[in-house]
Design a protein around this nucleic acid. Structure first.
Lengths: 160, 160
DNA sequence: AAATGTATGTCAGAATACTTACATGAGTCA
DNA sequence: TGACTCATGTAAGTATTCTGACATACATTT
């Protein structure tokens, strides 16, 4: 604390901590590396990482709505909408033109989509395996659980 | 379509693993939450997270080149260039119009930039502290080290 | 039934970041 | 010196994602 604020040139000139020891920095670095590697891996299938995420979500929740997919992929509805359209035009997913009950248009994988997704999954799993290869089982569990707690800590106090 | 390969529904229908147990998923989730929280925290200062990262880099490496900043922030030179211009127009950083020796235009924080950055740093550190608050010191070390190893594993085999 | 609140899908525009491309300066090597 | 390589800065165009806005459909309340 201490906000005498006058004689504290500390704010700027102190070299606070090594970047590499900051979780946020490592997080961003790893995310960047993972994204690059995944894009590279998926390029032969003409899929981007967000597109893959969309298909993957759909595999786990067949018939999901656009908004549901968006929440699961941590993007906005609008972003997911453009994503869905692209995949729809390519024939990888289907979506009814009109809603059955509400406004929800349940989306599903086509057989072509399943085919592409199968290839994508095996590639992505290989990347994922490579990423965690330096960690033993116990460490993986610890890290995953730790990240889960960090997420909760960030989100709990947020109003929305 | 329908090819002989009907009886291997394994590729798609198997529910492979819980999403929450996948490191990549948790990574994305946490990154998303962190980004949102940081943007929210920095909004009163009229700074976005990328802009903050730029200033923060500059604090650690005064006189860094645009390309250097880009690498440190995991964005392209061009992206950092637009970022730098915006901050320059706002008077938070300075950049010589012409290069002294090579083509490098060393960038530095202005006193106004230092002032804003100081406020930003304290806010961001609060967010960061909240994020890691559920972890004890040992776990933080383990997680940070684990992420470092994952980064290395992803990057080592890459030609890029 | 009417009003309200919530969730969805979608359009339009702006912000953001990337890819491609080119020119310039410096270092290396013949 | 000249050719080659590499890194930098920048421009133009594209792609991606967001914010703001609006209409629709259902549930709840009055």
């Amino acid at each position: 604390m201490s906000q005498g604020s006058e004689d504290h040139n500390a704010g700027t000139c102190e070299e606070p901590v090594e970047l590499e020891s900051l979780l946020g920095y490592q997080l961003k670095h790893l995310q960047s590396a993972l994204r690059s590697t995944m894009d590279e891996t998926l390029r032969p299938l003409e899929l981007t990482t967000p597109q893959y995420n969309c298909l993957e979500q759909l595999r786990r929740r067949p018939g999901a709505s656009n908004s549901e997919l968006a929440r699961g992929a941590f993007v906005t509805r609008q972003t997911m909408n453009t994503l869905v359209r692209g995949l729809q035009e390519r024939g990888l997913i289907t979506r009814p033109a009109t809603a059955e009950s509400g406004r929800v248009l349940p989306t599903r994988l086509t057989s072509a989509g399943v085919e592409v997704l199968d290839q994508a999954v095996s590639r992505v799993e290989a990347v994922s395996a490579r990423m965690v290869s330096p960690l033993d089982d116990e460490t993986r569990t610890i890290v995953t659980e730790a990240l889960r707690r960090c997420i909760a800590a960030l989100e709990e106090a947020e109003d929305g």
